[in-house]
Nucleic acid binder design. Structure first.
Length: 407
DNA sequence: CTTAGGG
DNA sequence: CCCTAAG
C-alpha cells in the first residue's frame, strides 16, 4: 500500500470539522469528479462508492474499503453507519443518493431565494436556473424557458401574440436551448401540465416559511372559535422562526416583533394565557397578523394566471388552479381570484390616467410589467364582469377623489 | 364545494 | 390574504 504521509491528516481534519454542513463542503470538490455518475441512475452504486471513497484513486490509495477504512472512524458521517454498510447495500445506497439530492436541492432552494427576492432581477434568475440545471442534472432546463414561450398555443387564438413576443424578453430570451426545446413542447394540456409542474419552484423566500407553517391547517374552518386562535395554528410543533423577507414598504419591524412573540408563546402558553395574550396584543397585531401568510406574486405566476384565464375564462378559478398552479399549493383558487382582481385595479389606474392614478402607478403597479397590464386589459375586455368591475372601481375612485378635493 | 364580494 | 354568504 502506498499511503501518502499527508493522508491521515486529511481525514483527521475532515473528522474534526463539525458535522452539519462542513462535511459536504469538504467533499464537494471530490463530488465534482463523480458528478456525472449521479446523473446516471445506472451508476448508482459506483457513484456512492466514489463519493464515499472520496476519490481515493486520485489520491493514490487503494480503493478497497476494508483496507482503506482500517484505523479510521467514519462514524462522523451522520446516520450513514459505517463505510462497510454503505458500500454494499442498495437500499442504503439509495438513501445516500437521496441525501445527496437533498444537498443539491438545498443549493437549489437557496439560489431560488436569491433569484426571486427581487423581481427586477429576472436576468439573474435565469442565470441561476442555468447554473442549477448544469449542476444537478435534473431536467431543470425546462424552467429556462418561461411559460410565455408556449402561450401562443393557448392564447394565440384569442389574439395575444404580441404579448407573447413581448414577454419572452422578460424571462429568458438569452437561453440558447430555449427555442429548441420549445419546439419539442407540445401545447396540449397534458404536456402543459408537466411543464408547469416542473416550472414550480420560482419560490420567493417566504415560500419556505409557508411550507413550514403549514397552510392546510390555517384553512381550517371556524378556527377562530378555538381558544387560542391562530397561535395554535402551528400546532405547537414549529421549531422554525418564521420571518417574512418579502420586500415591503410597511412596518417590517412590527411584523418581526409579533412573529417572534408568537414563536415564544406557541410552546408554553396555556390556552387561557394565550387568550390573554390575544386580548392584550390584538389591536397591535391585527393588521400585520392578517397578512401574515402573504406571499409575493412572481411575474411568472402572473403570467400563469393570465394564461389560465385565457384558457378557461374568468371565474374558473378552480380549473385554473388545478391546471396552472397545481404544484403551487400555496395558491388557492381564491388567491388567484384575488390576484386577478388586483390586476384589474392596476389596470384601471393606467386606463383612467388622473393624478392619483399616476401616483398609484408609481407605487403599487410599478412592479407589474406594462405588457402584463396590457394583457390584463385585453382579457378584461373579453369578460363583461371584469369590465363592470373596472368601471365601478374607477368610478368609485373618481368620486372619492371629488370628495377629497371638496374637503 | 365553488364563487363572489367585502374587509 | 382572510372571512362569509350564496349558489
Amino acid at each position: 500500500m502506498d499511503r501518502r504521509p499527508d493522508f491521515p491528516e486529511t481525514f483527521a481534519r475532515l473528522k474534526c470539522e463539525s458535522v452539519d454542513d462542513s462535511i459536504f463542503d469538504s467533499i464537494q470538490d471530490k463530488m465534482n469528479d463523480v458528478k456525472h455518475f449521479l446523473m446516471e441512475p445506472k451508476y448508482d452504486n459506483m457513484a456512492v462508492d466514489s463519493f464515499l471513497g472520496l476519490g481515493m484513486e486520485t489520491m493514490g490509495i487503494s480503493s478497497k474499503m476494508e483496507e482503506f477504512s482500517h484505523g479510521f472512524d467514519f462514524s462522523f458521517l451522520p446516520d450513514y453507519g459505517g463505510l462497510h454498510s454503505c458500500k454494499t447495500q442498495d437500499g442504503e445506497a439509495g438513501l445516500k443518493l437521496e441525501i445527496l439530492d437533498g444537498f443539491l436541492d438545498e443549493v437549489d432552494e437557496v439560489e431560488d431565494i436569491y433569484a426571486s427576492h427581487d423581481l427586477s432581477s429576472i436576468g439573474n434568475e435565469t442565470e441561476v436556473k442555468k447554473k442549477v440545471s448544469e449542476s444537478d442534472g435534473h431536467p431543470y432546463g425546462l424552467t429556462n424557458f418561461s411559460s410565455e414561450s408556449y402561450s401562443p398555443g393557448i392564447s394565440g387564438s384569442i389574439g395575444f401574440s404580441e404579448w407573447s413576443n413581448e414577454t419572452v424578453r422578460h424571462t429568458d430570451s438569452k437561453n440558447v436551448s430555449s427555442g429548441k426545446v420549445k419546439d419539442s413542447l407540445a401545447t396540449n394540456s397534458n404536456d402543459m401540465r408537466c411543464f408547469y409542474e416542473s416550472e414550480d419552484d420560482k419560490k420567493p423566500l417566504s415560500t419556505f416559511i409557508g411550507s413550514w407553517v403549514g397552510r392546510g391547517k390555517r384553512r381550517k374552518k371556524n378556527f377562530r372559535n378555538t381558544s387560542s386562535s391562530r397561535l395554535d395554528s402551528l400546532d405547537g410543533t414549529t421549531s422554525c422562526v418564521s420571518y417574512d423577507f418579502r420586500p415591503r414598504n410597511g412596518p417590517l419591524k412590527k411584523c418581526i416583533h409579533t412573529k417572534t412573540e408568537h414563536t415564544i408563546s406557541d410552546d408554553q402558553q396555556t390556552s387561557s394565557e394565550s387568550e390573554d395574550y390575544i386580548s392584550v396584543t390584538n389591536r397591535s397585531k391585527s393588521r400585520s397578523d392578517r397578512r401574515k401568510h402573504q406571499r409575493m406574486w412572481t411575474v411568472d405566476e402572473v403570467v400563469k394566471l393570465l394564461d389560465g384565464i385565457s384558457h378557461f375564462g374568468v371565474g374558473k378559478w378552480t380549473d385554473i388552479k388545478n391546471l396552472f398552479f397545481d404544484s403551487a399549493s400555496y395558491r388557492t383558487p381564491i388567491d388567484i381570484r384575488d390576484k386577478w382582481r388586483n390586476l384589474l385595479k392596476a389596470c384601471c389606474n393606467i386606463k383612467y390616467n388622473d393624478e392619483e392614478a399616476e401616483e398609484k402607478r408609481r407605487s403599487a403597479s410599478r412592479t407589474i410589467p406594462k405588457d402584463i397590464l396590457l394583457r390584463v386589459r385585453e382579457l378584461a375586455s373579453l369578460d363583461s364582469k371584469s369590465l363592470c368591475f373596472a368601471h365601478d372601481y374607477s368610478r368609485s375612485r373618481s368620486t372619492s377623489n371629488r370628495k377629497k378635493k371638496r374637503s
